[in-house]
Amino acid sequence: MFESEAGQFQAAGIQVGADHGQAEERLLSEALTPFGVSRRNGALEMARLYAVLHCFENEVRSLIRETLEEKEGPEWANKLPAKVKQHAESRQKTAFSDSWLEGEKSDILGFVDFGQLASIILENWKHFEALMPSQHWLKQRMDELEKARNFIAHNRTLLPSEFQRIYMYVADWNRVIGL
């Protein structure tokens, strides 16, 4: 009964219950408090880029997984380029032996380097060519995004002009792929 009543209040714009957004902002603010304002502001700018690249990279992984699964069947992972598969399996084995890491470990694509994602698509181009304008288009965007991604992943700061390039490439990818 409370939930149905609360829904009516929420629909009218009245907050009912905890505001998770404010709670998250407060926790982030507390965690960043020891650092200077300039460092905090830079970190928050880079966090937005990280979030965009995180979503992008995992969308590419999903596209690869879903496409290969549909075209090649349940044994699609056997169609990965040999070097890529070997590298990913080695990293996956290490993750399983590091028992203190409790994240997702079963997805082989989660252990493929960003730069190797394009090679998987290129190796299986017949399954992806209807989705993308050309191999050159794919390679150019993935190479540029890999450079930016590695910069961000190693906690380096990019210039605002680079932010726009990343947003443009991701938006271009989303438009072409249909996200």
Score class of each variant (00 low, 15 high):
G7P: 00
A12I: 05
A12M: 14
V16D: 03
V16A: 05
A18P: 07
H20G: 07
A23W: 10
A23P: 02
E24A: 14
E24D: 10
E24C: 11
E25L: 15
R26A: 15
L27F: 10
A31E: 08
A31W: 04
T33F: 11
T33Q: 14
P34Q: 09
F35Q: 03
G36S: 06
R40T: 13
R40V: 13
N41Q: 12
N41D: 13
G42H: 07
G42V: 05
G42I: 06
L44P: 03
L49E: 01
L49Q: 04
Y50F: 13
A51N: 08
A51W: 06
L53M: 08
L53D: 02
L53W: 02
C55P: 03
F56D: 00
N58L: 06
N58C: 07
E59L: 14
V60A: 01
V60H: 01
V60F: 04
R61N: 04
S62R: 12
I64A: 03
I64K: 05
T67G: 04
L68S: 01
E70K: 12
E72I: 05
G73K: 05
P74H: 09
A77F: 07
N78I: 03
V84C: 02
V84W: 01
K85L: 15
K85D: 07
Q86M: 11
H87M: 11
A88T: 00
A88D: 00
E89Q: 13
K93Q: 09
T94R: 09
S97W: 02
D98S: 09
D98E: 08
E102I: 12
G103R: 01
K105E: 00
L109P: 01
F111M: 01
F111S: 00
V112D: 02
F114W: 12
F114Y: 13
Q116K: 09
L117S: 04
S119Y: 03
S119A: 08
I120Q: 06
I121T: 05
I121K: 03
L122P: 02
E123L: 10
E123N: 15
N124S: 11
K126T: 11
H127S: 09
E129K: 12
E129F: 06
A130T: 08
A130Q: 09
P133R: 06
Q135F: 04
H136R: 15
H136K: 12
W137V: 04
L138D: 00
K139F: 05
K139P: 02
K139W: 09
Q140G: 05
M142C: 00
E146D: 06
K147L: 15
A148S: 06
R149H: 04
A153M: 12
H154S: 04
N155G: 06
N155H: 13
N155L: 14
R156Y: 11
R156A: 12
T157I: 14
L158R: 10
L159F: 13
P160H: 07
F163D: 09
F163Y: 14
Q164A: 13
R165E: 07
R165F: 07
M168A: 13
N174W: 13
R175Y: 12
V176S: 08
I177S: 13
L179T: 08
